[in-house]
Design a protein around this nucleic acid. Sequence first.
DNA 1: GTGAAAGCGCTAACAC
DNA 2: GTGTTAGCGCTTTCAC
Lengths: 337, 337
Amino acid sequence: MTNDPQMQRRATSYDVARQAGVSRSAVSRAFTPGASISKATRAKVIRAADALGYRVNHLAKGLSNRRSDLVGLIVADLDNPFRAAQIDSLARELVANGYRPLLFPSDENFSTAEIVHLLLHYSLSGVVVTSDAPPTEICAECVRNGTPLVLVNKEVDNAFVDRVSVDNLRGGRLAAEALIDAGCKDLVALRPSRRSYSIESRIRGFRDGADDAGLEVTMFDGDLQTYEGGQSTAARFIERRRRNTGVFCPTDYMALGFLDALVTEYALTVPKDLQLIGYDDIPQSGWSFARLTTISQPVDQLASAAVSLLIDRINNPDADARVEVVPVELVQRDTTS
Amino acid sequence: MTNDPQMQRRATSYDVARQAGVSRSAVSRAFTPGASISKATRAKVIRAADALGYRVNHLAKGLSNRRSDLVGLIVADLDNPFRAAQIDSLARELVANGYRPLLFPSDENFSTAEIVHLLLHYSLSGVVVTSDAPPTEICAECVRNGTPLVLVNKEVDNAFVDRVSVDNLRGGRLAAEALIDAGCKDLVALRPSRRSYSIESRIRGFRDGADDAGLEVTMFDGDLQTYEGGQSTAARFIERRRRNTGVFCPTDYMALGFLDALVTEYALTVPKDLQLIGYDDIPQSGWSFARLTTISQPVDQLASAAVSLLIDRINNPDADARVEVVPVELVQRDTTS
DNA sequence: GTGAAAGCGCTAACAC
DNA sequence: GTGTTAGCGCTTTCAC
């Protein structure tokens, strides 16, 4: 019973082994489910460990096992409630599967590429990217490094990386059909200034749907993909008054700003003066002031698909890359009739 | 130039040393800013490292240094935009200071206490808690374990733990003063069912403010501290019609549900029929439909204070615990006159 | 300035 | 079942 007054150090497996009168391997085995160790020894070890306040150091364990349970989680635009929900869901799913999410917000000053670079120093089990798709070279770097990488909702042409995505094309098409069913003859798609592959796909789907009904789609250049962007777009849009207009906005966050400005500041009545449909189904879209019709993305399904893709990749590093597509659904509310 | 076809392993400092014709220590020094190494050697090492795609393994480095740069970040209610902003800010601040945030969402099934327990296995540099305050024993466990702990916006009676908090008392008082200035004679405070120390403080501050003006405060039991909770509270509140009523709701998230229901479903006019003030200043409070007067918490200041508290603790483990209080501010919008 | 050697805390063969 | 030995990848005295 060494009792140094200075002894601040955490107890190690060595300390426990001494205390319990066994070897360090015994200690290790005591904490490894399914290891071959007698009940008696395990009990002795556990007792000593408790007394010493010992807990296995997972980082050291990882070093020894050549595998950490850390997963990088790269995210942008956390102010968008959709991203917040997505991160929440991903983090939970990772934790539920024994992984520890390392959160990295990306932005203009700190690009996804730089972050991936950083992360490669941590011998991670994997990386999940929900922000901008990293450039091809970065993806290649991960592969070269042997770090599993999963892209969420990023359709890039890096055919060699796993990704999971919502069915954007179909979502866009659903939006078009909903507006057409509601009697719209004049179809408009808002195109935010900062685009992405998934925004483009949604719009493409929308056009496809319109095409099939023999309708044209007018493109209207929107501003930022945020509430404020929606608002300022509305200010410009207001000049363009037509009858039976149906607007598709590829992000709820932006759609809400658009709607709010239209109703509150320009006194339009929705769906009478104009019909509107969004995408994402963020919580705010269900709020009374909005009741926005939208296309819902199943955030939880997206997350669990992403994590299972990651796990598969970890277990089978050399398998071919897969693309998982999760379904979307129309949520009919009051901005369409 | 060993060229095993199977060689999937990441290059180690050993490989680099061999390649560069130096020792492993030289490699280590080459990557340690300010280490004593000649320019020539460093150059040789860097070249070899680049060729091999070598990157120092920070986890191993941490093991050797007995310090990881990992910080646990425990958060609840990420659906509340305030929490999302808080996490975003904290994560950025941590990363900016060279730490890596390990994100753990807490909820009913996975309590803050359990998570702290989990985290203690990772020899973290520290833990930041923004969810419920962990029980005293857990805090004590951290201290015993030598893991720095910072509580954000949690005023608990654990005098021995560092914490940073917004000036809730003053915020509540500001709210009362604003309503009184706006002519309210009938003051009401909504008290959400799931309370917390900081909610209580806000309400206490509100009462103090009312007291000073010689006014009573009527307590109204609210439902959940969410948008939906606010909505359902409104449904019950609607029966209680008085003149010149001013309502204080200690969370914007809830206040917005309350307001939205009042206006959209019960056709009240704000601030004519009733004045309302919230707390947090989440982005949605500035949206046109709401224009909610509120008390703003400086999220970034909160985050940087938390991180600097953490860093101080890391550098000086035996210092006395500190409490940092950041100021609040009234944001006057359209729900008060 | 540089290398040898010991060690961070743990696990995984391998013998017994 | 259990202990011994040899690492995991890195840093850091300590001599030179």
